[in-house]
Design a protein around this nucleic acid. Sequence first.
DNA 1: TTCGTCATGTAATGGGTTACATGATTAC
DNA 2: GTAATCATGTAACCCATTACATGACGAA
Lengths: 173, 173
Amino acid sequence: MLELAVLGLLHEAPMHGYELRKRLQAMLGPFGAYSCGTLYPTLRRLLRNGLLAEEPGESGDEAGNRRNRRVYRLTEQGRDRFAALVGECDRHACDDAAFVVRLAFFSRTPPECRLRVLRARRRRVEQRGEDLRTALAEQRFDEYAVALHTLALENSEREIRWLGELIERERTG
Amino acid sequence: MLELAVLGLLHEAPMHGYELRKRLQAMLGPFGAYSCGTLYPTLRRLLRNGLLAEEPGESGDEAGNRRNRRVYRLTEQGRDRFAALVGECDRHACDDAAFVVRLAFFSRTPPECRLRVLRARRRRVEQRGEDLRTALAEQRFDEYAVALHTLALENSEREIRWLGELIERERTG
DNA sequence: TTCGTCATGTAATGGGTTACATGATTAC
DNA sequence: GTAATCATGTAACCCATTACATGACGAA
Protein backbone atom coordinates (compact mmCIF):
# COMPACT_ATOMS: atom_id res chain seq x y z
CA MET A 1 0.00 0.00 0.00
CA LEU A 2 2.42 2.61 1.22
CA GLU A 3 5.01 1.21 -1.14
CA LEU A 4 2.71 1.66 -4.10
CA ALA A 5 1.81 5.19 -3.05
CA VAL A 6 5.46 6.19 -2.55
CA LEU A 7 6.53 4.78 -5.89
CA GLY A 8 3.58 6.50 -7.54
CA LEU A 9 4.37 9.90 -6.13
CA LEU A 10 8.07 9.66 -6.89
CA HIS A 11 7.09 8.73 -10.43
CA GLU A 12 6.49 12.43 -11.04
CA ALA A 13 9.44 14.00 -9.29
CA PRO A 14 12.09 13.34 -6.63
CA MET A 15 11.00 14.26 -3.13
CA HIS A 16 12.00 13.97 0.50
CA GLY A 17 10.07 12.02 3.11
CA TYR A 18 8.26 14.85 4.80
CA GLU A 19 6.93 16.18 1.53
CA LEU A 20 5.81 12.69 0.49
CA ARG A 21 3.89 12.47 3.69
CA LYS A 22 2.02 15.71 3.11
CA ARG A 23 1.31 14.90 -0.54
CA LEU A 24 0.03 11.48 0.45
CA GLN A 25 -2.32 12.97 2.99
CA ALA A 26 -3.61 15.59 0.56
CA MET A 27 -4.04 13.07 -2.24
CA LEU A 28 -5.58 10.13 -0.42
CA GLY A 29 -7.15 11.70 2.63
CA PRO A 30 -7.37 9.28 5.53
CA PHE A 31 -6.19 6.41 3.30
CA GLY A 32 -2.83 8.10 2.88
CA ALA A 33 -2.29 9.34 6.42
CA TYR A 34 0.80 7.36 7.33
CA SER A 35 2.79 8.19 10.42
CA CYS A 36 6.50 9.00 10.45
CA GLY A 37 7.24 5.70 12.08
CA THR A 38 5.86 3.94 9.02
CA LEU A 39 7.05 6.19 6.25
CA TYR A 40 10.72 6.68 7.03
CA PRO A 41 11.63 3.03 7.61
CA THR A 42 9.75 2.16 4.42
CA LEU A 43 11.81 4.67 2.45
CA ARG A 44 15.04 3.19 3.81
CA ARG A 45 13.84 -0.28 2.90
CA LEU A 46 12.98 0.73 -0.66
CA LEU A 47 16.40 2.37 -0.86
CA ARG A 48 18.12 -0.82 0.34
CA ASN A 49 16.15 -2.85 -2.19
CA GLY A 50 17.21 -0.62 -5.03
CA LEU A 51 13.76 0.71 -5.89
CA LEU A 52 14.75 4.19 -4.79
CA ALA A 53 18.02 6.10 -4.95
CA GLU A 54 19.15 9.05 -2.89
CA GLU A 55 19.79 12.29 -4.73
CA PRO A 56 23.30 13.51 -3.97
CA GLY A 57 22.68 17.32 -4.04
CA GLU A 58 21.10 19.06 -1.06
CA SER A 59 24.11 19.02 1.25
CA GLY A 60 26.00 21.55 -0.89
CA ASP A 61 25.38 25.22 -0.14
CA GLU A 62 23.48 25.92 -3.35
CA ALA A 63 20.52 28.32 -3.34
CA GLY A 64 19.15 28.05 0.21
CA ASN A 65 18.57 24.27 0.17
CA ARG A 66 20.98 22.81 2.68
CA ARG A 67 18.50 21.30 5.08
CA ASN A 68 19.26 17.87 6.38
CA ARG A 69 16.83 16.22 4.02
CA ARG A 70 17.11 13.00 2.09
CA VAL A 71 15.72 13.41 -1.39
CA TYR A 72 14.70 10.18 -3.10
CA ARG A 73 14.14 9.43 -6.74
CA LEU A 74 12.73 6.38 -8.52
CA THR A 75 15.19 3.93 -10.11
CA GLU A 76 14.46 1.85 -13.20
CA GLN A 77 13.76 -1.08 -10.91
CA GLY A 78 11.37 1.08 -8.93
CA ARG A 79 9.56 2.05 -12.10
CA ASP A 80 9.12 -1.62 -13.03
CA ARG A 81 7.91 -2.45 -9.56
CA PHE A 82 5.34 0.34 -9.70
CA ALA A 83 4.06 -0.92 -13.06
CA ALA A 84 3.70 -4.42 -11.63
CA LEU A 85 1.97 -3.29 -8.42
CA VAL A 86 -0.48 -0.87 -9.97
CA GLY A 87 -1.81 -3.54 -12.35
CA GLU A 88 -2.46 -6.21 -9.72
CA CYS A 89 -6.02 -7.53 -9.51
CA ASP A 90 -5.94 -10.20 -6.82
CA ARG A 91 -8.13 -10.17 -3.72
CA HIS A 92 -5.92 -7.77 -1.81
CA ALA A 93 -5.65 -5.33 -4.67
CA CYS A 94 -9.44 -4.92 -4.58
CA ASP A 95 -9.69 -4.05 -0.90
CA ASP A 96 -11.09 -0.60 -0.24
CA ALA A 97 -7.81 1.01 0.70
CA ALA A 98 -5.73 -0.74 -1.95
CA PHE A 99 -8.19 0.08 -4.71
CA VAL A 100 -8.28 3.74 -3.72
CA VAL A 101 -4.52 4.01 -4.00
CA ARG A 102 -4.49 2.24 -7.36
CA LEU A 103 -7.15 4.54 -8.70
CA ALA A 104 -5.30 7.60 -7.46
CA PHE A 105 -2.41 6.68 -9.74
CA PHE A 106 -4.53 5.62 -12.68
CA SER A 107 -3.18 8.32 -14.93
CA ARG A 108 0.18 6.49 -14.78
CA THR A 109 -1.45 3.15 -15.55
CA PRO A 110 -1.81 1.65 -19.04
CA PRO A 111 -5.45 1.61 -20.29
CA GLU A 112 -5.90 -2.18 -20.54
CA CYS A 113 -4.60 -2.41 -16.99
CA ARG A 114 -7.10 0.17 -15.81
CA LEU A 115 -10.00 -1.82 -17.25
CA ARG A 116 -8.83 -5.01 -15.60
CA VAL A 117 -8.53 -3.32 -12.23
CA LEU A 118 -11.92 -1.62 -12.48
CA ARG A 119 -13.65 -4.83 -13.47
CA ALA A 120 -11.97 -6.81 -10.71
CA ARG A 121 -13.13 -4.23 -8.21
CA ARG A 122 -16.64 -4.38 -9.61
CA ARG A 123 -16.77 -8.15 -9.24
CA ARG A 124 -15.64 -7.77 -5.68
CA VAL A 125 -18.26 -5.18 -4.81
CA GLU A 126 -20.96 -7.19 -6.56
CA GLN A 127 -20.04 -10.21 -4.46
CA ARG A 128 -20.28 -8.14 -1.32
CA GLY A 129 -23.68 -6.84 -2.40
CA GLU A 130 -24.98 -10.37 -2.94
CA ASP A 131 -23.70 -11.46 0.44
CA LEU A 132 -25.47 -8.54 2.08
CA ARG A 133 -28.72 -9.29 0.27
CA THR A 134 -28.77 -12.94 1.28
CA ALA A 135 -27.83 -12.03 4.86
CA LEU A 136 -30.74 -9.58 5.01
CA ALA A 137 -33.09 -12.20 3.60
CA GLU A 138 -31.95 -15.19 5.68
CA GLN A 139 -30.95 -13.86 9.06
CA ARG A 140 -33.29 -12.51 11.66
CA PHE A 141 -31.47 -9.33 12.54
CA ASP A 142 -32.44 -6.73 15.07
CA GLU A 143 -33.29 -3.25 13.77
CA TYR A 144 -29.71 -2.01 14.08
CA ALA A 145 -28.23 -4.86 12.11
CA VAL A 146 -30.87 -4.35 9.45
CA ALA A 147 -30.07 -0.64 9.23
CA LEU A 148 -26.37 -1.46 8.97
CA HIS A 149 -26.81 -4.00 6.21
CA THR A 150 -29.20 -1.78 4.33
CA LEU A 151 -26.76 1.13 4.28
CA ALA A 152 -23.91 -1.14 3.23
CA LEU A 153 -26.05 -2.62 0.46
CA GLU A 154 -26.98 0.82 -0.88
CA ASN A 155 -23.33 1.84 -0.82
CA SER A 156 -22.41 -1.28 -2.77
CA GLU A 157 -25.04 -0.61 -5.40
CA ARG A 158 -23.95 3.01 -5.72
CA GLU A 159 -20.32 2.01 -6.14
CA ILE A 160 -21.24 -0.54 -8.78
CA ARG A 161 -22.99 2.15 -10.82
CA TRP A 162 -20.04 4.46 -10.27
CA LEU A 163 -17.64 1.76 -11.45
CA GLY A 164 -19.88 1.16 -14.46
CA GLU A 165 -19.53 4.79 -15.46
CA LEU A 166 -15.76 4.71 -15.06
CA ILE A 167 -15.54 1.52 -17.11
CA GLU A 168 -17.74 3.00 -19.82
CA ARG A 169 -15.62 6.13 -19.93
CA GLU A 170 -12.50 3.96 -20.29
CA ARG A 171 -13.97 1.98 -23.13
CA THR A 172 -15.23 4.90 -25.17
CA GLY A 173 -11.92 6.68 -24.55
CA MET B 1 -12.51 -4.95 17.97
CA LEU B 2 -12.47 -8.70 18.10
CA GLU B 3 -12.56 -8.53 21.87
CA LEU B 4 -15.72 -6.41 21.78
CA ALA B 5 -17.36 -8.73 19.27
CA VAL B 6 -16.52 -11.86 21.28
CA LEU B 7 -17.81 -10.38 24.53
CA GLY B 8 -20.93 -9.19 22.73
CA LEU B 9 -21.74 -12.59 21.28
CA LEU B 10 -21.06 -14.44 24.52
CA HIS B 11 -23.38 -11.97 26.22
CA GLU B 12 -26.27 -14.02 24.85
CA ALA B 13 -25.07 -17.56 25.39
CA PRO B 14 -21.93 -19.63 25.98
CA MET B 15 -20.24 -20.81 22.78
CA HIS B 16 -17.10 -22.46 21.49
CA GLY B 17 -14.56 -20.75 19.26
CA TYR B 18 -15.58 -22.21 15.95
CA GLU B 19 -19.18 -21.21 16.43
CA LEU B 20 -18.16 -17.72 17.46
CA ARG B 21 -16.22 -17.44 14.26
CA LYS B 22 -19.20 -18.38 12.10
CA ARG B 23 -21.60 -16.14 14.00
CA LEU B 24 -19.16 -13.26 13.69
CA GLN B 25 -18.91 -13.72 9.96
CA ALA B 26 -22.68 -13.97 9.54
CA MET B 27 -23.33 -10.96 11.74
CA LEU B 28 -20.65 -8.55 10.59
CA GLY B 29 -19.80 -9.76 7.10
CA PRO B 30 -16.25 -8.88 6.12
CA PHE B 31 -15.81 -6.83 9.29
CA GLY B 32 -16.16 -9.97 11.37
CA ALA B 33 -14.14 -12.37 9.25
CA TYR B 34 -11.33 -13.16 11.65
CA SER B 35 -8.95 -16.02 11.02
CA CYS B 36 -8.36 -18.91 13.40
CA GLY B 37 -4.93 -17.57 14.16
CA THR B 38 -6.51 -14.44 15.58
CA LEU B 39 -9.58 -15.81 17.27
CA TYR B 40 -8.23 -18.71 19.31
CA PRO B 41 -5.30 -16.87 20.92
CA THR B 42 -7.67 -14.01 21.73
CA LEU B 43 -10.04 -16.40 23.51
CA ARG B 44 -7.18 -17.81 25.58
CA ARG B 45 -6.09 -14.31 26.46
CA LEU B 46 -9.59 -13.28 27.58
CA LEU B 47 -9.73 -16.50 29.62
CA ARG B 48 -6.39 -15.72 31.29
CA ASN B 49 -7.58 -12.19 32.08
CA GLY B 50 -10.74 -13.47 33.72
CA LEU B 51 -13.19 -11.97 31.22
CA LEU B 52 -14.22 -15.42 30.07
CA ALA B 53 -14.52 -18.75 31.86
CA GLU B 54 -14.50 -22.22 30.43
CA GLU B 55 -17.64 -24.30 30.82
CA PRO B 56 -16.82 -27.57 32.51
CA GLY B 57 -19.38 -29.84 30.75
CA GLU B 58 -18.68 -31.10 27.22
CA SER B 59 -16.08 -33.73 28.07
CA GLY B 60 -18.70 -35.95 29.73
CA ASP B 61 -20.59 -38.38 27.49
CA GLU B 62 -23.95 -36.63 27.80
CA ALA B 63 -26.31 -36.51 24.81
CA GLY B 64 -23.95 -36.66 21.85
CA ASN B 65 -21.78 -33.68 22.89
CA ARG B 66 -18.33 -35.03 23.60
CA ARG B 67 -16.37 -33.17 20.96
CA ASN B 68 -13.05 -31.68 21.95
CA ARG B 69 -14.47 -28.21 22.14
CA ARG B 70 -13.84 -25.47 24.62
CA VAL B 71 -17.05 -23.70 25.49
CA TYR B 72 -16.63 -20.21 26.91
CA ARG B 73 -19.01 -18.07 28.92
CA LEU B 74 -18.86 -14.47 30.01
CA THR B 75 -17.82 -13.72 33.62
CA GLU B 76 -19.03 -10.73 35.63
CA GLN B 77 -15.75 -9.01 34.79
CA GLY B 78 -16.33 -9.72 31.13
CA ARG B 79 -19.80 -8.22 31.35
CA ASP B 80 -18.37 -5.04 32.87
CA ARG B 81 -15.68 -4.88 30.24
CA PHE B 82 -18.24 -5.21 27.47
CA ALA B 83 -20.32 -2.38 28.95
CA ALA B 84 -17.24 -0.17 29.09
CA LEU B 85 -16.09 -0.98 25.54
CA VAL B 86 -19.43 -0.66 23.83
CA GLY B 87 -19.94 2.86 25.16
CA GLU B 88 -16.58 4.27 24.07
CA CYS B 89 -16.69 7.31 21.82
CA ASP B 90 -13.05 8.24 21.21
CA ARG B 91 -11.43 8.50 17.79
CA HIS B 92 -10.85 4.77 17.44
CA ALA B 93 -14.36 3.87 18.47
CA CYS B 94 -15.68 5.88 15.50
CA ASP B 95 -13.60 4.14 12.85
CA ASP B 96 -15.63 2.32 10.23
CA ALA B 97 -14.94 -1.16 11.53
CA ALA B 98 -15.18 -0.26 15.21
CA PHE B 99 -18.45 1.61 14.74
CA VAL B 100 -19.99 -1.27 12.82
CA VAL B 101 -19.25 -3.68 15.65
CA ARG B 102 -20.61 -1.28 18.26
CA LEU B 103 -23.80 -0.82 16.29
CA ALA B 104 -24.19 -4.56 15.85
CA PHE B 105 -24.44 -4.90 19.64
CA PHE B 106 -26.59 -1.84 20.18
CA SER B 107 -29.50 -3.82 21.55
CA ARG B 108 -27.25 -4.66 24.54
CA THR B 109 -26.27 -1.01 24.99
CA PRO B 110 -28.02 1.47 27.29
CA PRO B 111 -29.99 4.16 25.37
CA GLU B 112 -27.97 7.21 26.49
CA CYS B 113 -24.84 5.37 25.44
CA ARG B 114 -26.32 4.68 22.02
CA LEU B 115 -27.04 8.36 21.47
CA ARG B 116 -23.50 9.34 22.45
CA VAL B 117 -21.98 6.80 20.09
CA LEU B 118 -24.22 7.75 17.17
CA ARG B 119 -23.50 11.46 17.63
CA ALA B 120 -19.77 10.88 17.90
CA ARG B 121 -19.86 8.89 14.69
CA ARG B 122 -21.85 11.64 12.99
CA ARG B 123 -19.31 14.28 13.99
CA ARG B 124 -16.60 12.07 12.60
CA VAL B 125 -18.30 11.52 9.26
CA GLU B 126 -19.18 15.23 9.02
CA GLN B 127 -15.52 16.09 9.50
CA ARG B 128 -14.56 13.65 6.77
CA GLY B 129 -17.15 15.20 4.46
CA GLU B 130 -15.77 18.68 5.04
CA ASP B 131 -12.23 17.50 4.36
CA LEU B 132 -13.36 15.95 1.10
CA ARG B 133 -15.21 19.10 0.06
CA THR B 134 -12.23 21.37 0.69
CA ALA B 135 -9.89 18.92 -1.03
CA LEU B 136 -12.16 18.91 -4.10
CA ALA B 137 -12.27 22.70 -4.10
CA GLU B 138 -8.59 23.42 -3.46
CA GLN B 139 -6.63 20.71 -5.18
CA ARG B 140 -6.29 20.28 -8.87
CA PHE B 141 -7.02 16.58 -9.17
CA ASP B 142 -7.05 14.45 -12.28
CA GLU B 143 -10.38 12.95 -13.32
CA TYR B 144 -9.84 9.75 -11.32
CA ALA B 145 -9.09 11.55 -8.09
CA VAL B 146 -12.15 13.74 -8.63
CA ALA B 147 -14.34 10.68 -9.20
CA LEU B 148 -12.90 9.08 -6.04
CA HIS B 149 -13.50 12.11 -3.88
CA THR B 150 -16.97 12.63 -5.28
CA LEU B 151 -18.06 9.09 -4.47
CA ALA B 152 -16.58 9.34 -0.98
CA LEU B 153 -18.34 12.64 -0.41
CA GLU B 154 -21.70 11.25 -1.49
CA ASN B 155 -21.20 8.27 0.80
CA SER B 156 -20.44 10.59 3.69
CA GLU B 157 -23.57 12.63 3.07
CA ARG B 158 -25.67 9.48 2.81
CA GLU B 159 -24.30 8.14 6.05
CA ILE B 160 -24.94 11.43 7.81
CA ARG B 161 -28.60 11.29 6.80
CA TRP B 162 -28.75 7.65 7.84
CA LEU B 163 -27.25 8.50 11.23
CA GLY B 164 -29.74 11.34 11.56
CA GLU B 165 -32.60 8.91 11.14
CA LEU B 166 -31.14 6.51 13.71
CA ILE B 167 -30.62 9.35 16.17
CA GLU B 168 -34.16 10.59 15.67
CA ARG B 169 -35.51 7.10 16.18
CA GLU B 170 -33.53 6.85 19.43
CA ARG B 171 -34.85 10.13 20.73
CA THR B 172 -38.47 9.51 19.99
CA GLY B 173 -38.14 5.99 21.39
C1' DT C 1 15.08 33.67 22.41
C1' DT C 2 11.59 31.05 22.05
C1' DC C 3 8.07 28.77 19.52
C1' DG C 4 6.17 26.38 15.66
C1' DT C 5 6.98 23.56 11.85
C1' DC C 6 10.26 21.11 9.10
C1' DA C 7 12.67 16.81 9.05
C1' DT C 8 14.34 12.20 10.33
C1' DG C 9 14.53 8.54 12.94
C1' DT C 10 14.11 4.40 16.84
C1' DA C 11 11.69 1.11 20.10
C1' DA C 12 7.90 -1.08 21.77
C1' DT C 13 3.55 -2.60 20.76
C1' DG C 14 -0.80 -3.87 18.42
C1' DG C 15 -3.64 -6.42 15.84
C1' DG C 16 -4.05 -8.79 12.39
C1' DT C 17 -2.59 -12.47 8.43
C1' DT C 18 -0.82 -16.84 6.24
C1' DA C 19 0.69 -21.27 6.38
C1' DC C 20 0.94 -25.08 8.75
C1' DA C 21 -0.08 -29.11 11.97
C1' DT C 22 -3.25 -31.95 14.33
C1' DG C 23 -7.06 -34.63 15.19
C1' DA C 24 -12.21 -35.66 15.85
C1' DT C 25 -16.74 -36.30 13.67
C1' DT C 26 -20.04 -36.74 9.96
C1' DA C 27 -21.76 -38.06 5.52
C1' DC C 28 -21.26 -40.69 1.55
C1' DG D 1 -12.61 -45.81 3.87
C1' DT D 2 -12.28 -41.40 2.38
C1' DA D 3 -13.55 -36.76 1.93
C1' DA D 4 -15.53 -32.66 3.95
C1' DT D 5 -16.13 -30.06 7.74
C1' DC D 6 -15.62 -29.30 12.59
C1' DA D 7 -12.34 -27.70 15.94
C1' DT D 8 -8.10 -26.01 18.01
C1' DG D 9 -3.89 -24.40 17.95
C1' DT D 10 1.36 -22.55 16.80
C1' DA D 11 5.01 -19.82 14.35
C1' DA D 12 6.48 -16.52 11.40
C1' DC D 13 5.51 -12.52 9.49
C1' DC D 14 3.40 -7.88 7.97
C1' DC D 15 2.00 -3.50 8.21
C1' DA D 16 0.88 -0.22 10.81
C1' DT D 17 0.64 2.58 15.26
C1' DT D 18 2.19 5.35 19.41
C1' DA D 19 5.50 7.56 22.00
C1' DC D 20 9.65 9.28 22.10
C1' DA D 21 14.18 11.58 20.82
C1' DT D 22 16.77 14.65 18.08
C1' DG D 23 17.90 18.56 15.73
C1' DA D 24 17.68 22.39 12.02
C1' DC D 25 15.35 26.50 10.53
C1' DG D 26 12.23 30.66 10.25
C1' DA D 27 9.49 34.04 12.28
C1' DA D 28 7.66 36.55 16.37
